[in-house]
């Protein structure tokens, strides 16, 4: 009778396999990663554009007014909380959680605009 392959053996094989492919990454990829890192770091201290700052301030004020005077739909908030609670109870079936997330995203992103 064959022995069951242990978790440690599988993890070890995966680590070795990944380490080997990491060591063999071709130079083009290594250079590209280095270049991406450098350009990301250069982008870390962008100057503040006064036009953008003004637009941001205006947007902030509009959002603030909307939040302050806008109608609060408590049912919506409760529904969302209910969904979140349900999702966390589905610990046994993570694929289903992923599907729900996906269809929510799909509906939000590709929903038809409401007809007035």
């Amino acid at each position: 009778m064959k022995h069951k392959i242990s978790d440690q053996v599988i993890e070890g094989l995966v680590r070795r396999s990944l380490q080997s492919s990491s060591d063999q990454l071709d130079q083009a990829i290594s250079y590209r990663l280095q270049a991406d890192r450098r350009s990301a770091l250069q982008a870390s201290s962008p100057g503040v554009n006064p036009m953008l700052a003004g637009a941001a301030l205006a947007s902030f004020c509009v959002i603030g007014l909307l939040v302050w005077f806008g109608p609060i739909n408590s049912n919506e908030v409760e529904d969302e909380l209910y969904i979140v609670e349900e999702v966390f109870q589905l610990d046994e079936n993570p694929e289903l959680v992923e599907d729900i997330e996906f269809y929510q995203w799909l509906a939000e992103t590709y929903a038809e605009p409401e007809k007035v």
Partner: peptide, 25 residues
């Protein structure tokens, strides 16, 4: 073995693959 393990990892469903690689790798 390395090549086979790569194919096997690639064939895992995304969340299994991510959880496994984040933990092991």
């Amino acid at each position: 073995i390395n090549e086979q393990m790569h194919k096997a990892i690639r064939a895992l469903p995304m969340r299994q693959q991510q959880a496994f690689l984040l933990r092991v790798w």
